[in-house]
Amino acid sequence: MNIRFEGKRALVTGAGRGIGRGIVKKLAECGAECVALSKTQENMDSLKNEVPGIQTVVVDLADWTATRDALENIGKIDLLVNNAGILIKSSFLETTKEDLDKVLDVNFKAVFNVSQIVARSMVETGNGGAIVNVSSISSRTAFRNVGSYCCSKGAMDSLTQVMATELGPHKIRVNSVHPYLVPSTEMTKPMFVSLPLGALEYCLSRIPLNKFLGKCGGCCQRCLVPIK
């Protein structure tokens, strides 16, 4: 399938590294004008060196007001990928309010915030668009010691359904994708190191293709084709 995005403008959050960085590169390769958002200036500088034509935005999505200020004049966005996320390991009994707030602020509230900003613009222009929320298999399967992360992704899934229902009449399609473990990202590398003997084989046995994604495979391309 040869999908092209010439004339489309895409915003990708959490674009500094990992899956988000790969998505920006793939969208740019497919002709989209990309806006890459990250909280780390160094990551944005290095990404811009690799993909010179992109626009970068540096803001901490955990800050609701700062995010709105940063995106206030972002302009028309046709495609949004809510990819930013954090994971804090702790057991259910040991999870603190502070850690729970940190995870929910980025993994759920920021998705709500950014999507609201972009969707309002899409509705106003009347041209529709597409939004992809990068969830996780952990939204549907419980994993030990990452309860706050699992809950945040479950909340994202519920929000995705609400957004799809409300925004569909405005020609805005909303989907979620649910990656399993991606060993090449900075967030999941430590998890692979600490897995007990046999755990990797067990994980692979649950994946139909029997392999982990090493980098972004461009799977968002189908989801981001705007509704005609």
Rank of each mutant, 00 (worst) to 15 (best):
C223M: 14
L71G: 01
F112V: 11
I207R: 05
V114W: 04
V225T: 13
K76D: 12
C223R: 04
V193F: 12
N133K: 02
V106L: 13
C151V: 15
G75F: 01
C30Y: 10
L93S: 12
G16T: 03
E124R: 12
R140T: 12
V103P: 06
V123T: 09
T56K: 11
L224C: 09
G14R: 04
R206G: 06
E72D: 14
Y149T: 05
A28T: 10
T13S: 10
K89Q: 15
S152M: 05
A32T: 13
P226Y: 07
R144S: 15
D78M: 08
I131T: 10
G53H: 02
V103D: 07
K89S: 14
G214T: 00
P226L: 04
V58M: 02
V118G: 00
G214D: 10
T96I: 04
P208T: 01
A155L: 13
E98G: 00
M187E: 11
Q161W: 05
S152I: 03
S115R: 01
Q221C: 11
L80W: 01
R17G: 11
Q55W: 05
R173V: 07
C223Q: 11
R206M: 09
E42S: 13
K26M: 09
S90V: 08
G129H: 03
V103L: 08
L181Y: 14
N83H: 08
E98F: 03
V24D: 09
Q41K: 10
E98R: 14
M191P: 02
L61K: 12
V51H: 07
K211S: 12
R17K: 15
Q116V: 00
C220T: 15
T160W: 06
K26D: 12
D45S: 13
P179L: 08
S205E: 00
G53M: 05
G126Q: 06
T125N: 14
L27Y: 06
L209F: 08
I137G: 15
Q221N: 13
R120T: 06
I207W: 01
V24H: 01
G75Q: 02
A15C: 13
S152Q: 04
M1A: 13
I19W: 12
C151Q: 10
R140S: 15
G22C: 08
L87D: 12
M163Q: 15
C150R: 02
S176E: 08
L167K: 00
T188M: 15
V35N: 03
N145Q: 09
V81D: 05
S184L: 01
R222I: 05
R21G: 05
M44W: 02
F192E: 11
I3N: 09
T40Y: 08
K76M: 06
V59N: 13
L71I: 01
A130V: 11
L71F: 11
S139T: 04
C34W: 02
Q221L: 09
G75T: 01
D105K: 15
A66Y: 07
E201N: 09
D99Q: 13
V118Y: 01
T56H: 11
I117D: 00
R68C: 10
L224Q: 06
G168V: 04
I117S: 04
N2H: 12
R140N: 14
N175I: 01
C220A: 10
P196G: 06
G20H: 10
E94F: 00
G147I: 07
R9T: 13
I3S: 05
K211W: 05
V114F: 04
F92S: 15
C216Y: 14
F5E: 06
R4S: 07
C150T: 06
A36Q: 05
D60Y: 12
A70F: 04
C223S: 10
D63E: 02
S138R: 03
